[in-house]
Computed example of a mutant assay.
Amino acid sequence: MRDIAIVTDSTSDLPDEFIKANDIQIIPLQVNCSNKTYKDKIEITYEEIYVNLDKEIPTTSLPFAEDIIDVFERLKANNIKNVVGLFLSSNLSGTYNLISQIAKDYLEYMNIKLIDTKTISMGIGHAVIQAANAVKLDKSFDEVVDIAVNTVKNTRTFFMLDTLTYLIKGGRIGKVSGVVGNILNIKPIIGVDEIDTGQYYTIKKVRGRNIALKTLNEIVQKLIDKKKECVVAIADAIAKDDRDKVYDMIKSNNNNIKDFIKTSVTPVIAVHTGPGLVGISIYCKEGLDDLRAY
């Protein structure tokens, strides 16, 4: 096996078992509460955040520079010569830019390719998984990078929110839209523009949670129609029952799905979405349509 390390940030929402089995290096973002700053997913869980939501809505921030340096120092000490990094959209966070600046100090020791995925959650996770699989197959550094980049291009990520409240408080959506949506029980289906801006956009707005869950399934069906061997990841934030409902709907209508991944969102994502999120990320090697057309 070649000396290629895969690095990502905590918002990739990868299952813990995969991270350990493939020695994926994780750089945690931060969750800021009034009493303390916590390392995402390491020192705090989304359950702990939601228990105290009536008292406090935390904020989030970039990784500590020390945590980024620690990862590169560890790789240097282990004589790793090649690093592929996949990170949260630079239009959603400054994480990619910060890591890029620090990585410059290590270019004399290793080849480093950092990728702004223009996405979030398992949109990043799919690319990490495919890159790690390529390393196991003894692919070259350039081949691993190409596989990671192509995976990002062939992945679509979208999610349903139970309420717009937390996106409003995080300054990511207009307040008028939020007030109307909450009054009318509107559930937004939000996509991530992986093709262009790397920002959130609204795919649909539907009334009622059950209809929103069915809409997630309908979008999946349209995306993977006549495709082969797609991988579907489903994530939740305190919504495992609904996550499983969507999983059952998707599975009952498809025989062309190679694998399913069930996971939960990281606390940093949970702060901005609130409880009740159900999200889907689909990777298909053949490519997928632009969700902005839906």
Rank of each mutant, 00 (worst) to 15 (best):
G125F: 10
I112Y: 12
S100E: 14
K139P: 01
G170F: 09
I120K: 12
I80L: 00
A134N: 04
G125A: 08
G171T: 03
S121Q: 07
L161V: 07
N133I: 11
D196R: 11
G178V: 11
K118Q: 06
D138V: 02
E73I: 03
K113D: 12
I129N: 00
Y106Q: 06
I102Q: 10
T119I: 12
G181M: 14
G94L: 11
K81P: 04
A77T: 04
G94Q: 10
A131K: 11
T197L: 10
S100N: 14
L98K: 08
Y106S: 05
H126Q: 04
V149D: 06
G171R: 12
T155E: 10
S61W: 10
I112A: 10
D138L: 02
N79G: 01
D116I: 09
Y201D: 12
N78E: 15
L114Y: 13
G178D: 05
Y200S: 02
Y166C: 06
N111C: 03
I115S: 09
I129W: 05
T197N: 07
T119Y: 12
L137Q: 15
S140M: 03
A134Y: 01
A127Q: 08
Q101A: 03
Y109A: 04
N91A: 15
S90N: 09
G198K: 07
K136G: 06
I68T: 07
D70C: 08
L98M: 13
I115H: 06
E108G: 00
V135D: 02
N82F: 07
F158Q: 01
V71S: 02
A131H: 03
R74Q: 13
E66K: 03
F87E: 07
G178F: 15
G94K: 02
